[in-house]
C-alpha cells in the first residue's frame, strides 16, 4: 500500500493515523468555534440571549456548552470515517493547529472586539 502523501510513514504501525487526525482536527474546530461563539455573543445581543443556558452563568454557559457539543459531534463523525484510514496528517495537523491558534487569539478581548 502506498502511503498517503504528507503522512508520517517512517515506520509501518498497526494503527493508522486516522483516529489521531480525527481527534486533532475536531479539537481545533472546537477551540475555534468556542472563540467564534464568544465573539458573536459579545457583539450580537440576540446571540447573547440565545446563549444563556444557565442564567447565573449567563451567555458563557451556552457558548461553552454549544462549542463542546459540536466538538464532540465532529469528533465522533470524523473518527467513524477515519478510524481505519491513513490520512494526510500533515495538512490536517497544520489546519488543526491553525484553528487552535485562531481560537486562542480570538479569545483575547481587544482582538475579538475588532469584529
Amino acid at each position: 500500500m502506498i502511503p498517503h502523501p504528507g503522512t508520517d510513514s517512517k515506520s509501518p504501525t498497526a494503527l493508522p493515523n486516522g483516529p489521531g487526525a480525527a481527534a486533532l482536527l475536531a479539537a481545533g474546530i472546537g477551540a475555534f468555534l468556542l472563540a467564534a461563539l464568544a465573539v458573536a455573543a459579545d457583539h450580537l445581543p440576540a446571540i447573547s440571549r440565545l446563549m444563556i443556558f444557565y442564567r447565573p452563568t449567563g451567555p458563557l454557559s451556552g457558548v461553552t456548552s454549544s462549542a463542546i457539543l459540536v466538538w464532540l459531534a465532529v469528533w465522533a463523525v470524523l473518527d467513524a470515517r477515519w478510524k481505519r484510514r491513513t490520512v494526510a496528517l500533515r495538512t490536517i495537523a497544520v489546519t488543526a493547529l491553525a484553528l487552535l491558534a485562531l481560537g486562542l487569539v480570538l479569545t483575547f478581548p481587544p482582538l475579538g472586539d475588532l469584529f
Binding site: T7, K10, S11, T13, L15, N17, P19, R90, L97
Partner: peptide
C-alpha cells in the same frame, strides 16, 4: 489509543504536544 505506538507517528505526537 496509540500508547507507545505514538513514537511511530512523530507528526501526530508533535501536534498533540503542541495542543
Amino acid at each position: 489509543r496509540y500508547k507507545r505506538e505514538i513514537k511511530n507517528h512523530p507528526l501526530l505526537r508533535n501536534a498533540v504536544l503542541c495542543f
